[in-house]
Every structure is written in structure tokens, then in C-alpha cells.
Design a binder for these strands. Structure first.
Lengths: 344, 344
DNA sequence: CTCAGATCGTACATCGTTGTATAGCGAGCG
DNA sequence: CGCTCGCTATACAACGATGTACGATCTGAG
């Protein structure tokens, strides 16, 4: 095994010897202990510079009992939404002096559970957790004793902080955005029939509410299921909708990847967007600005979510109370109108 | 500060006490030391299960002098190519029993340098490093003493292992793909004029070679510069090309993000792809399969690159020779033809 | 001039694990 | 029957940093 803590293997002892002080004084300099004579500090700092010394983080972590690392568990970086979320989280964590360790769960139940109990977890002061397959029951049965902040809409009511968004409202706003443009045959793509919780359920509800408010009937034939929210599933779902012969003049896709798949299917079949079918997505990933046509979407305020989540987690870590009453923060969303729902 | 190593704070001592053995025996069980009586092993394992014990990784890391973590330094997860690369690397590392710590450099020189010397580095057994801004000189002047594997085409000839691809050949193949379809006014997008090394230089060279081999002149007016290889820059570059009035019937974009920007600009201006302008990209990100039209591209074999890079790094770590002669692996590429370069 | 209180620095124990050295014990062999 | 050897388990000392407790100095007031 390679030696970590390399940097030439210089330890505090070496620095102390060179500066003519005890190792604790070196430690004190590094930790900004106030009572050090400027001259002493000077000498120590010089010795540190000359030797190129760096603290051994493993030793510090062991002694301190914390690592300055937080975990981020998400399904797959391959999915643009999560890549962008990870990007934002890493940025936010950096600003707080924290490092992020990403763990991919592949949205598989067993791996989502494994993240919570793995030895890895143990190298980390807390966890930002974005499950897609777990239930509330899974979580409560585990009696977790580390700081955790939940992300997303899969689990509500758990005994942990939660950063989420107004899913129902946002889905309703997206659907209303289509209705306001005169569309009356609005389909939705991404439903998870039979599921009791999660984004799909909430967004479907928002969709229904919008229809209802507009006095339109809810037609099951206009609801296309798609278990994986990726481009391929979106395209397949749109194909099914078109093949079914049910009339469609607009689509609310439950995320942007699905929406891009929908656009793809429509394009392949020569259906004009937005003239024949308008499309709106959800997440406002960067790609939405560059698709053809550009994709209208719901912007969840990703940076705000990341920043809030990191802040909540850090507070819990600093306060040292993994328990404590759970807090929920609902992030703001905005509807971003682009070509795929243009009027004219 | 929160206590890591939580898991109830159970230590080997507790397990040892419960099993009626010494702590070293517990350690031996955990580390698969061969000489343990089955009955003893049994008791220890039971005690571990009952107490829910997990090794304290900080302590283990300190004692072992290695962490089982490798760093992955890349520009931004926001860029789909790097998100997909990170995904592949995490997967490959997992299969090798390693964990990945991602660090974002934003392609900024100072941050790329910081990664090499930061205390963070120190928590890691080795580094997969994908610089965009650094020079070979920067790297050699640092005299790094940890295992490192370079990714990408920015730096060649450094004293470290390197996984790269046949950039010139691949760019040439991409251009020839366009020429083979009868295009004669082939532009390229993404050039970095004045730069001496890096992907842009190599890919431009491949482009030139293809033109030359086809007996076509190299026209500077057909070379569009784009420093950042993202969608916005691709769109802007395409706009400049169209505005310039120089005739264009095909575009070789130096990566897919640029190509998607190019498609976007063409769509916005009503130019038909591939009828009027054919477009090919580079990287074969997932999005290329779902754009409208779908995007032809060069597939660099991302999984193979990730797997090879992790393997090389792991070998270095295991052998403990950070120095040792540098090895270079050139990954295979393939041309993936899709709608954006279809004939008819 | 003495002594309390503020500054500055040090010795030692400790975080939880693993490497090294070694002790006990039985079996096999001459 | 005694000795060697292979297995099993242990005690002890690290790994490199930091918290605690306590000396050593210096200052200024009485």
C-alpha cells in the first residue's frame, strides 16, 4: 500500500525540531491558538514552509473525531440533473470549508440502503441524501444516528432535515403554463402508477389540480408512465402516446430528461414543436437552453437548494445533535418559458 | 464538531470484551488473518454483529498510511463529458475497492495547481488528473511524489502515467466522415489559436490532415475559435461563421457540447441539418443520442478510459512506486454516425 | 520587593487501529 | 520421551495529531 500523508513524510516532530519548539506548539500555530509569541509563530511558520510540512489528515481526523467530509448520495452522475446538483453542492461545501464524497446508488434499493450503513459513511461527518427507491419505513427502521439532510421528494416526514421544493405547486404551474397557451389536450409523461410517494406522485397531483381548476377532465389515457426518468423513457412514452391515437397538443414531462426524450420522439415523427405539440419539462438543466427547440421548464433553484442543504447539514454537524427536531426548507421555483411552449 | 466514527462509538475493545478475546484478534478477523480457529472467528463475528461494530476508518488510515481513496480532479461536473467520466471512474474504482473524491478546478490555473498541493490531496492515495489550463512545465517543476495518472490531452511527456486517446487520428476520422459524405466546405469549431498543446491543437491538426489528404485547401476562415467548450460558445462560434458569409456545408465541432451549440444556432437560423450543414461532434455524450437531429460523434470509449486509468493508478499505489517509468495508454475510438451527418 | 494574574510553552495521555514479537499449546517425528 | 514445528492468540508499541494539566516566564500592583 502506498503511504498517504506523503509530502515527504514530514511530521510535526520534524517541524518542531527545526523550529526549536515542542510539537504541541507547532500544533498550536496550526490551530490558531491565541497565546503564541509572534517570534515563535514566525519561526514555526518558517520551518513549516522550509520543510513543506502538511498536517496528516488521517491523524487529525482520528484525534478530532471528525473529518470535514460530507457524503452526497445520489442515483447517477450520468443524469444531468444530479451532475448539476453535485456541482452546486461541491461549490457550496467548498465555501463552508467542507469536502464532498459522492456515492452513486443507481437508484437501487439495496445500494441506497448500503450507503447508510457502509464503512464509508463513517469517514464522513454527515450525509446529503437523495434517495429514489427507499421508503419512509426503511429510513425510520434504521434509527440513524448521524447528521443527515434529505433532498428531493421521495421521502417526507422522516426524522431528518429536508430540502425540497413545492412539487405540487410547480407541476401545477407547469401545466397551467400550457393551458394558458390555449392547449386543451395536455398529456403528462413520467407517472409511476401504484406508487404512494415520490416526485412522480406529487407532480401528477399538480397536473390534476391544474386541469381541475381549468374545468378540464382528467383522462388516464393522457398519462404516460415512465419509471426511469431518462431520455429513452421519455421518447418511448411519447411514442406510446402518439401510437395510442389519443389527441395531444401539449406535454408536461416530469423532468427535463423525459422532456428531451419527448422532443426527440416528436422530432423523429415529424411533429412540430410547439406548433402541434407544446412541451414543458422540469428541473431546468443546462441542456434545456440548447435543445432544438429550446425547452421550457421549471427551475428549482438548484444553487439555493445546494447551499441550503449544506448549511443545514453543517449546522447539525457543528451543534453535534444528530437528533433534534427536523427542519424542512421548501425552495422557490420559477417557470422558465422557452421555444417549446412559445405561442405565436 | 460532530463525532465521526459514530455507529454508536463501538470500538474494537468493546467487541473484544464481548467475544472474550484480545483486540488484535478482532483486528485479525477483520483483516482475514489466516490463523484463527473457526470457533473464535465465529464468536468475534457474532459480537461484531450484535454491537453493530464498524472499523474506524480514520484510525485505520492513520495506522495503515493509506486511505483507499483516490482523487479525481476535473474542470466541472456541469460539463456532461466530465459528469459521465466521473460516473465511469466511480464505477471502475468501486470494482477495485476504491473510493473517489472529486475535486473541481473550474479549468482555472490556480485551482488546478492547488489540487496538487492541497491538504486534501493528502487524504488520498493517488490522483486521476484532468487538467485543462496547466503546462507540462508547471507539472515538472513541482516534483510530485504521489501516484498520479493523467487524463486527456492537455499535457504530454510528464513523468506520470497517462491515459489518452488518438486525438489526431480521431479528429481526422471525424473530418473524413464529413468529406466522405460529399461535403467540401468543412468548418471546425473550438480552436484555441496560439496554444501549443491540448486537445484543441491536436484536433485541429487531425482536421488539417484530413483536408490535406483529400486535396482540399486549409482555409483559416473556416476555423472558428471557442475557448470554452460549452454549448454557448459553440452557438456563438456558429453564428460568427454564418455571419461571416464564408460558405459552410459541414462542421466538425471539437466536442459534443460545442456541437450541440452549433446545432442550436443552426436551428435558430433555420438552417437544415444535415441537408444544408452536416455536423459531427466529439466525446459521444449521452445527449448526442437525443438531440434533434441526433448527433454524430467520436466515441472515445469512456468506460475503457476510466477502467484503465483506475487500474494504472492502483498498480502504482500497490507497488508503492510513485516514480517508475511513466506508461501511456491510448484508448480506441470509433466514429458513431447519426442523423446530423446522414446522407440522402 | 513580592506576589497574583496573565502569557507562553511543554510533557503526557489519548484517539482506534494494525505490525512485530512472542508465548502457549498440541501434534508429529526421531 | 523430548524436541521441533505449525498453529492460535496475545501484549505492546507504534501511526501523527490534539486536549489537558501544569510548569515557566513576564507584567504590574501593592
Amino acid at each position: 500500500m502506498g503511504r498517504a500523508g506523503r509530502t515527504g513524510g514530514v511530521t510535526m516532530h520534524d517541524v518542531a525540531a527545526r523550529a526549536g519548539v515542542s510539537i504541541k506548539t507547532v500544533s498550536n500555530v496550526l490551530n490558531e491558538y491565541p497565546y503564541i509569541r509572534p517570534a515563535t509563530r514566525e519561526r514555526v511558520e518558517q520551518a513549516i514552509a522550509e520543510l513543506g510540512y502538511q498536517v496528516n489528515l488521517s491523524a487529525r481526523n482520528l484525534r478530532r473525531g471528525s473529518t470535514g467530509i460530507i457524503g452526497l448520495a445520489l442515483p447517477e452522475l450520468r443524469l444531468p440533473y444530479f451532475a448539476e446538483l453535485a456541482d452546486s453542492v461541491i461549490g457550496a461545501a467548498e465555501r463552508e470549508g467542507l469536502t464532498v464524497l459522492i456515492e452513486q446508488t443507481g437508484a437501487e434499493r439495496t445500494r441506497e440502503l448500503a450507503v447508510l450503513t457502509s464503512a464509508q459513511r463513517q469517514l464522513t461527518d454527515g450525509l446529503l441524501y437523495s434517495p429514489l427507491a427507499l421508503d419512509l419505513a426503511d429510513l425510520t427502521s434504521l434509527r440513524l444516528d448521524f447528521p443527515m439532510v434529505l433532498l428531493g421528494e421521495r421521502i417526507f416526514g422522516a426524522d431528518a432535515d429536508h430540502v425540497t421544493m413545492a412539487n405540487v405547486d410547480a407541476a401545477r404551474a407547469a401545466t397551467e403554463h400550457l393551458l394558458a397557451r390555449g392547449r386543451r389536450r395536455v398529456a403528462t409523461v413520467g407517472a409511476h402508477p401504484g406508487e404512494a410517494s415520490g416526485s412522480a406522485v406529487l407532480r401528477l397531483q399538480g397536473y390534476r389540480e391544474a386541469l381541475e381548476a381549468a374545468g378540464l377532465p382528467f383522462e388516464p389515457a393522457l398519462v404516460a408512465e415512465a419509471w426511469f426518468w431518462n431520455r429513452a423513457a421519455g421518447a418511448a412514452a411519447m411514442d406510446r402516446l402518439l401510437d395510442s391515437g389519443v389527441g395531444v397538443d401539449a406535454v408536461f414531462a416530469m423532468n427535463d430528461a423525459l422532456a428531451l426524450g419527448v422532443l426527440h420522439a416528436l422530432h423523429r415523427r415529424g411533429v412540430a414543436v410547439p406548433e402541434q405539440v407544446a412541451v414543458i419539462g422540469f428541473d431546468d438543466i443546462e441542456e434545456a437552453q440548447y435543445s432544438a427547440p429550446t425547452l421550457s421548464s421549471i427551475s428549482p433553484g438548484r444553487d439555493q437548494i445546494a447551499q441550503t442543504a449544506v448549511r443545514l447539514l453543517r449546522e447539525r454537524i457543528d451543534r453535534g445533535d444528530a437528533a433534534g427536531p427536523p427542519r424542512t426548507v421548501v425552495a422557490e421555483f420559477t417557470v422558465v418559458a422557452r421555444e417549446s411552449t412559445a405561442t405565436s
